[in-house]
Design a protein around this nucleic acid. Sequence first.
RNA 1: CGGGCUGUGGCGCAGCUUGGUUAGCGCGUCGGUCUGGGGGACCGAAGGUCGGAGGUUCGAAUCCUCUCAGCCCGACCA
Length: 571
Amino acid sequence: MRWSSLFIPTLRDAPAEAEAASHRLLVRGGFMRQLQSGHYSMLPLGWRVHQKVAQVIREEMDAIGAQEFLLPAMHAASVWQASGRWTSMGDEMFRLTDRKGGEFALGMTHEEVFATLSLELASYRDLPQLWYQIQWKFRDEPRPKSGLLRVREFAMKDSYSFDLDDAGLDRSFDLHHDAYQRIFRRLGLDAVPVEASSGAMGGSASVEFMVESDAGEDDVALCAACGYAANVERATAALEPVENRPSSDAPESFDTPGVRTIATLAELGHPPVHQVKTLVYRVDGALTLVLLRGDHPFLEQKFVDATGAVEVVPAEADEIRSALGASPGSLGAVGVSDLPIYADEALRGRSGMTTGANVDDVHLEGVDVERDVAVDHWVDVRGILDGEACASCGEPLRVARCIEAGHIFKLGRKYAEAMGVSVLDAEGTSRVPTMGSYGIGVGRAMATVAETHHDENGLVWPMAIAPYEVVLTVVKVDHDDSMAVAEGLYDELRAAGVDVLLDDRDGRPGVKFADAELVGIPMRVTIGPRGLESGALEVTTRADGEQTDVAVEEVVAHVVDAVAAGRAVGR
RNA sequence: CGGGCUGUGGCGCAGCUUGGUUAGCGCGUCGGUCUGGGGGACCGAAGGUCGGAGGUUCGAAUCCUCUCAGCCCGACCA
C-alpha cells in the first residue's frame, strides 16, 4: 500500500484520557479510536495487526487438530437458563429483548452453545473433539480501562474440548498448554503459565498465561529458584515461624481509647504478627467473621474458592454494630457463638494474641486462638506478600504485576451435564463427556505486545504481527530517480510476498521517519538522492535502530531474508 | 457501586477564582512560495451548539441545580 492513500491518522499528542502505554501508542499511531468507554474502532492499521494475531492463533490451534467454527454472538435466554448462568452471570451479561418480547443475551463466552452442538456427538468414537472460534464477546464490565486491555466488546479465540474421561481431558488440556506457549512465543510475549483460580467458570484446574507488565491487573507470585508460579488469588507461601508471646489463662481486656487500626495498636506494643484482624462479611446473606493475622491481607477470591460462596461483600457498619456491639477497629471473635467464624491457617496454634473486645476502645490480650475462639472453619484466605518464602523450596517469592493473556480451564462435566450431552462408550453405556475451555483475547494480546514492545519513539512490532513488514521511505518524492527505484522495490517486494508500505507522501523526511517509528514497522529502507548516488540504500531495523547500507540491487534479497527470519521467530 | 478528577475546533491546552466587545494559543488541516536525510520557514485561510438541560442575571464558557459522558483508585471481573 501507498502511505499517501492509506488512512493512518497519527497524532503528535496522545488523548488526555489515555494512560497505559499501549493505549497511548495505539491511538497515536492511528491503529484505533474509542467510540465509547470499552468499545474501540479498529482502523486499517489496527485491524491488520488484529488479523495477524488471530492468524497466529488460528495456525497453532489448527496444528493441534482443532476445528474452526463460528457461532452466533447473540443467544436466546433459554440456552443460558439451561446451565443456570442466566442468573449467575448477573449484571455482567448484556441482555436485550426482541420485538416479540423474547429475551436474549450477547454472548460473554460460548460453553453453552458449543455444548448444545455437542449434543450431536453420539459415540465414544466421535471423541475427542477440539472446537474453536474467533468471535466477539460482550461483557458489561464495571470498569473498562487501559485501552484494549479491558473492554466490553472484544474478539476472543475460545476453544472447547470434549473427552470421554479425565485422561483425555488432561491430553486436550496439555495440547492447549503447549499451543498457547507457541502462540505467545510467536507473538513475542514472555508468557508464564501460572496456577490460577477458576473463578466463575468452575472446574478442577486452570492455568493462566501471564505477561509481566505494570499495566496488568493481576498479581502473580513467582519463584526464581524452583519455578513455582501462581496467581496470588491462590498462591501459598511458607510461613515464617512466629514465637508466641507468653499467654495467660484467659484473655485480659485493656483500654485503647481512639485505637482503630492495626498500626496504632502496634505502636502500643502489639506487633501486627501478634494481632488477630477481624473482618465482617455478608456471605450469601449471612453475617460472617473472617479472622487473619494482623499483617496479612484478606483475599476474597481465596475465600470464595474455599467456601463456594457466591456473594461475598463487606458488611455495613450498622449491621456490624448491631451484631457485635462495637464498630470496626474494636472487633474480635472471642466469645462470639452466633456467627460463623472462618480463621486463616496462619492463626493455628497462636496464643498471646491481641484482638478487639467488641467494646469500643477496648482490646483483649493474651488470646489463645484455638482456646478462646469458636472457629468453625480453618481456611487459607490470606494474600501472600512479596519476599515471603516459597512453600516448595524456601527461596523468596517475588510478586509481579501481570496481564492475563490467556486462561485455560478443565471444566469437567458441569456444562455437558446441564445441556444433556452424552455418548455411548464401548460397552454401550451412556457417558457424559468432560470438557475443557480455553481462551485468548485477541485485542488484549495485541495490546499486551504493544505494552511490552515500545520505546520512546513508538511501537516496535514483532515481524509476525507488524501491520507492514517494511516501509520504503522516499526522502524526496519529486526526485524522479528516487521514486523510480522505490516503485521498483515496491513491486518486487510485493511479488515476493512481503507486506510492504511505500511512503510516497510529499512531506518532510523527519516527519516520515518519525511516523514510521511511531507506527512500529520493523524495517525501513530509506530512498533518497544521497543513497542513490553511492548506489547503496540505508536499511534500518526498528528494534535496535541498527543501520546497514545495502547495494540497491541487493535490497530485495536482503529484505526478503530479514522478513523470513523475523516471521520464523518462535516457530 | 464508593472515592477523586475532567469535559472549550481533529489532538494537546489557556480562559472560569473576580460574569461584560468578535472565546484565545500550540500542533494538525487547506491554498501558496521557498524547502527537502530527523516533526523547517514565511504569507494567507478554514474549522468551536464552550458535553446537555434548566435556572440566576441587562448579560453566562465563567455563578447555581440537575443530567450525560470520559479518566484514575477501589469494589467487581473467564
